[in-house]
Computed example of a mutant assay.
Amino acid sequence: MSEPARFPVPDVVSRRAISEGEAGLAWLANLDDTLSSLEQDWGLTIGPALPGGTAAFVAEATTETGEIVILKLGTPGTLAGRHEAEVLRRADGRGYVKLLRHDPDRHAMLLERLGERLDTLELPYERQVDIMCATLLQAWMPVPADLPCPTGADKANSLAQAILSLSYDAGQPCAQAVIDMALMYCQDRAAAYRPENAVLAHGDPHPANTLALLDSEPPQFRFIDPDGLAIEPAYDLGVLLRAWHEGIAGPHAHDIARSHVRHLTRRTQVPSEAIWQWGYIERVSTGLHLLQIGQIEEGRIYLDVAEAITSTMG
């Protein structure tokens, strides 16, 4: 009978690794040895996995000097196409969690410890949006010439393919006008991509990826888990917009949704129409994705709001 693992892996992370095939299975099988070697090489004492992660082993660790830090090891499949460590290294704490050490061969990062997640603070979503806008204004930076990130055109085209595939698999889950509008906007954003207008964007700046900086007064926040995209700033703001459902119903649904976009523009000075289009695309693609993974009720909220917007556009 084999001994139990020293570092048990949360079920959701284990399932994610298994779904990645041979590479994920090997990562899972070697995880105890990898963590033990990191303890020795980096002078750490690693604690149990923290809750909340879905695609990485994340745990608190204590350094030889008694400092508490965060150790993160992503599964191999989740690292494909992402530039998390590079974004964090270049940001050096500006708008992002600070990267302390990185070992690409072991997919390991040592990060500063942050505080509570924004989504746990029971703030109105508009207040959460304001916090994330302020943090994005710190985080956006020029795209490094030596960092081959996916571009805005790549993102628009991949979202169009996902919307087509997911809507077909779901069997007409919403009005065809919603799908047609999202695909038209994907085409518009792909055509609008210009390298000179791009920033190194987060790619998924939602409240669960926004954490409070410890001992900051007034409170400040930092992002975790960046994808790293070479894309217009409006894309990140579209991600904020996709979940801003408040009040979007009835005969004025479109006008209310547009008022949310104007709020984002006032906070960031980013042009409204690009935010609007990315937000619509993200709302539809996210709703379809949630249906695919079995989160039916939440997915329907996204798609019902998109239908309400589309049907009241006039």
Rank of each mutant, 00 (worst) to 15 (best):
L241F: 01
H245V: 04
A257Y: 02
A274R: 12
R266C: 13
S272Q: 13
H263Y: 00
R242T: 04
T265L: 04
V261Y: 03
H252Y: 11
G279D: 07
E282P: 00
G247C: 02
R267H: 00
L240M: 15
I248V: 14
G250A: 05
W276V: 06
I275S: 04
A274S: 14
Q277W: 08
H252Q: 15
H252K: 10
G247T: 01
A257C: 09
G279R: 05
A253T: 06
L240C: 11
A253E: 06
H263C: 03
R258T: 09
V284S: 12
E273W: 01
L264C: 13
S259I: 00
R283P: 00
T265S: 08
H254K: 08
L264I: 06
L241T: 05
H254Q: 12
G279W: 01
H260D: 02
Q277V: 03
W244I: 12
E282H: 12
Q269W: 06
W276R: 03
L240I: 10
H254S: 13
R262M: 12
W278I: 08
A274F: 02
Q277M: 14
Y280L: 14
S272D: 14
I275T: 09
T268Y: 08
T265R: 02
R266T: 14
T268I: 04
E246I: 05
W244K: 08
P251T: 14
V261N: 11
L240G: 11
H252A: 15
E282D: 14
T268C: 09
I248N: 04
L240V: 11
L241S: 04
H260M: 03
Y280F: 15
L264A: 11
R242E: 15
I275N: 03
L264Y: 04
R283A: 10
G250H: 00
V270G: 01
W278R: 04
L264D: 11
T265Q: 09
L240Y: 03
H245S: 11
A249E: 12
H245A: 13
P271N: 07
Q269I: 02
R258V: 10
Y280R: 10
A243T: 13
E282V: 14
W278D: 07
R258G: 07
V270S: 00
H245Q: 07
R266K: 13
R242Q: 14
T268N: 05
S272A: 15
A274H: 08
Q269D: 15
V270P: 00
H260K: 02
R262G: 15
T265H: 01
A243H: 05
I248E: 04
A257N: 05
V284N: 11
T265W: 01
H263Q: 10
G247F: 01
I256R: 12
G250K: 00
R242L: 14
A243K: 10
R266W: 09
I248D: 07
I248K: 00
L241I: 05
W276C: 08
T268A: 10
A274C: 03
A249L: 04
A249I: 05
I281Y: 02
G279H: 04
Q277G: 02
W278S: 10
E282Y: 06
R283V: 03
W276S: 11
I256E: 12
L264T: 06
R258W: 12
A257W: 06
A243W: 01
I275A: 09
I256A: 06
E282T: 10
I256F: 07
G250E: 08
H252T: 14
I281C: 09
